[in-house]
Design a protein around this nucleic acid. Structure first.
Lengths: 238, 238
DNA sequence: GAGTGGTCTAGACCACGAC
DNA sequence: TCGTGGTCTAGACCACTCA
């Protein structure tokens, strides 16, 4: 038995994406939807809140819920998404090269944040992402071995996130992400096709599980012409 | 009379920021908070949802609400925030130079998106942001004159957002933002202290009002060493 | 088993927009 | 005035964690 408000949300997303309404149209009112889906208004409101958060509608008091145009930009990277999810969605011609897998003692590597107990170690994976035959992204990932006891080349070759969520049953909760532009390191120059570019875009993130524990630190280093970040944001209210 | 859940949210933020709890601590349970604030549990849950969205807590089923560390990175730019708000928050030594104010016919300027009726025009403001004596950001803003009938140099010198929200009474709803790295234009080289940098970071956004109407397009061009973007994201659920 | 957060309900009153 | 979304309530049942 799926959650009712999620079922309604998914149904409405489907109806919006199939152009049942056009941009600027109003959704049926909350009371009408409550009747249609045979549920209470608060449950409808939960589904509509999700639609609003994800940029499908804008609620206007006294009027209704307006369908808005979310996909002004074509490369949806808002939120946490893995490279594999992304390339699948965009149908990019891509390849992943596992460059190295190491099992480190964090106290030697200035990765103090990741260590919980002093005898916990850290997995480090470096992967190169090739798009259309060019090496344009270097992903450096660090995992606490408390959560990921073993990493093999096969796992790293596929989607580590898929492995984590579906095989290990861990649930990602939230991430903090930082985007800056830096000078390329020796390693960048060696592993990527930088072609004279004098900068790389670096995305550093700390990924936490459902129970708020930090389990991964990543550094994703992009050739600047292949970088694009898209964000959908609501104005912060008081 | 302020909204109850907002009052509770603000109170809890204050208590968190004053270190009433440390990272990893549990908030009082929802039932206990409901009693403390003399309200229903659903109202408490609204306040906690806000805390969660804004990265103060992570709710864990069966356990409680965990205080999490939001400020691993020090430059909070997530969401929609204006340059003036930012510099104030960071206490930066900054200055704004209004370079030009123009009143344009959008059909000549490939700004078709902004025009609603054919006789509406568009305000264009170019401003240079100086930090510590260096010209490092070029902001190019375009406003539909339906919403902003008049822009003066004085308004542009201060915070346009402040003017819009407090003087005109307009309410910002949401924005779509895109971040890419580009080659500097002639204008960038002329107006900014680029010092041999061969890239600029460009943030393009479309800002919509509360009623979902598009009223502003902006392009913010940053010298790469002075650019930093921070994001707090929750994992998308199905 | 006790306590936690997650979902859902049926109803109430309010602020706002359109007519 | 009527319909809309926004807030708030009191209660119910469930799924989960932990002792």
């Amino acid at each position: 038995m799926q959650k009712k408000y999620l079922r309604i949300y998914n149904d409405l997303v489907k109806r919006i994406q199939s152009n049942s309404w056009t941009i600027g149209d109003l959704l049926p009112s909350e009371n009408e939807l409550a009747a249609q889906y045979d549920t209470s208004r608060e449950t409808i409101r939960k589904a509509l809140d999700l639609l609003s958060q994800n940029g499908y509608i804008q609620k206007v008091r006294g009027k209704g819920s307006v369908i808005i145009n979310r996909n002004q930009f074509s490369f949806p990277v808002s939120g946490i998404e893995s490279f594999t999810e992304l390339t699948e969605k965009m149908a990019l011609n891509s390849r992943t090269i596992v460059h190295s897998i190491k099992y480190l003692d964090p106290k030697n590597e200035s990765m103090e944040i990741l260590k919980g107990n002093p005898n916990e170690k850290v997995w480090n994976v470096n992967r190169i992402r090739e798009i259309d035959g060019e090496k344009v992204i270097l992903d450096k990932d660090y995992f606490n071995d408390k959560y990921i006891p073993l990493l093999t080349e096969e796992i790293c070759q596929g989607s580590i996130y898929n492995y984590i969520e579906n095989e290990l049953g861990l649930v990602i909760g939230f991430a903090q992400k930082e985007i800056v532009v830096e000078n390329p390191t020796e390693e960048d120059r060696e592993l990527l096709d930088l072609e004279g570019f004098s900068n790389v875009v670096v995305i550093r993130s700390q990924v936490h599980l459902d129970d708020a524990s930090l389990f991964q630190i990543t550094e994703s280093r992009h050739r600047p012409d292949k970088f694009r970040f898209v964000d959908f944001a609501r104005r912060v209210k008081n």
